[in-house]
Amino acid sequence: MQTGASRPKSFQEVILRLQTYWAGQGCAVLQPYDMEVGAGTFHPATTLRALGSNPWAAAYVQPSRRPTDGRYGENPNRLQHYYQYQVLIKPSPPDFQQLYLGSLAAIGIDFDYHDIRFVEDDWESPTLGAWGLGWEVWCDGMEVSQFTYFQQVGGHDCKPVSGELTYGLERLAMYVLGIDHVMEMPFNDPSSPIPLSYGDVFKQTEEEYSRWNFDVAETEMLLRHFEDAEAECERILSHEHEDPKTGRRIVMAHPAYDQCIKASHLFNLLDARGVISVTERQAYIGRVRALAKRCADAFVQTSAGGWTQAA
């Protein structure tokens, strides 16, 4: 196990080291998905690619939005927009835990001085109809990653099983850099000609979005958009597999899944506006899950999802 890597100097260096590390382990380093999502798991590179029998290895940063977590940029740890680092390898390699620990070493965590623990935390995404078993990983009592062996996605058994890692980048970087307030964290190298802190980059947007998320977003419109996305998702999937124009078999799993992502984010916004009750929540979550399930059904009908022309 490699230990004793030097300490990174900035948020972006933590990200760069993770990128380099996972690239070195053979992962395709992807770019963030270009839609508003609540977590890196929603990226089709995780949700959809965990399905089917094709091998897969990808790593990427995913900006994630959790409208209810907005604190106007004042809370030391909470943000309505933050970054997750996501790794998905299928089938999960036998030394996945060691590979993961290697990534912590790469960002400067010295195991001689820190206490790393794998604490039971089974992951479940009711909106994605997905679950897996694993842990939250603790470093000195702080959760630094979520470590999951996917068992089911969109109601489908994962065969083979994917190993998934999610790092909360801000929290992890703050710990490694020894910073107490996220807005004070150096975003780039503090000795750069123009040093920028996380606050320089995001304080403004945290304030603006917090206000919009909590008090201004038009709920009637959000509700309407939710219903539009839901309808469009179903409409897309109701099309024949064979495209009449090209004569090819084109199952539109990804465009449909985009609508599912939209519905999920709209639900999060409605939730932040406080207009969804505990009992109603279940109904909304059920509606998004139904979409996710249909998208998963569609994806396994694509060649990327392992579909082959049956004899």
């Binding site: 089938p91 036998p94 089974d122 078993l133 694993g134 062996y149 068992q151 099983v161 190993g163």
Partner: peptide, 17 residues
């Protein structure tokens, strides 16, 4: 609660090494 891992079919609480 048990799980599968990798390409195997064996079920254990977490991967058995």
């Amino acid at each position: 609660k048990s799980m599968r891992w990798g390409s195997g079919t064996l079920r254990w609480v977490r991967p058995l090494h």
